[in-house]
Amino acid sequence: MLQVERLGIRYGAVEAVDNLTFHVPDSTCVALIGSNGAGKSSVLKGIMGLASATGSIRLGNTDLGGLKSHQRVSAGIALSPEGRHVFADMSVKENLLVGAAGHDREALVTEMFGLFPRLGEREKQIAGSMSGGEQQMLAIARALMSKPKLLMLDEPTMGLAPIIVDQVIVLINVLKKRGLSILLAEQNAEMALEVAEHAYVLETGRLKREGASADLARDPAIQEDYLGL
């Protein structure tokens, strides 16, 4: 589904991502693991067209290079950003509607409310007044409103209660079954290795390790650095 080759991202003198190659197969979840500042968010921003990147990024047969963010969204990429970034002074429903230019919105909204009953109950509530977990669900639902082929989740469990983290895991599995490909950037390595089939470990913008999640989870070095065991 997604092919990223020799990705490089610089901010001035700072090299955030260096020569990173990876891919996300159809209907699977791939995780990017690493500590704060390892470059995970930069990778997602690069794919989204929010940071200028070198190298090649392809979604299916579409070359995303040179496309603007909104064109990438039309091409089938969606992002639930780190820190959620919901439109704080708009209602839940308006948040969803903004994320769905050019689709059958009412049907999609109904679908989202089916997937996230909590949001349905709070249709008219102002997004900024909801709890962190609800905002996270809204951010994911908003991303799904553009009917993406690839959903990118940036730190979806950040600051959430364990029970909500479990809900996110359940959700990711549901979405995979529906045929969506998912790229997950997470510091919470245990959660990421649990939900993803394959993972890439980043350190200071470079690829450090990659492999099947199960293998990585058993790897002593990974356990020590990222699982806190």
Binding site: M48, G49, L50, S69, H70, H85, M145
Partner: peptide, 9 residues
Amino acid sequence: FAAQVVGIN
């Protein structure tokens, strides 16, 4: 930022 993320031109 969020506007760009959701695909607003």
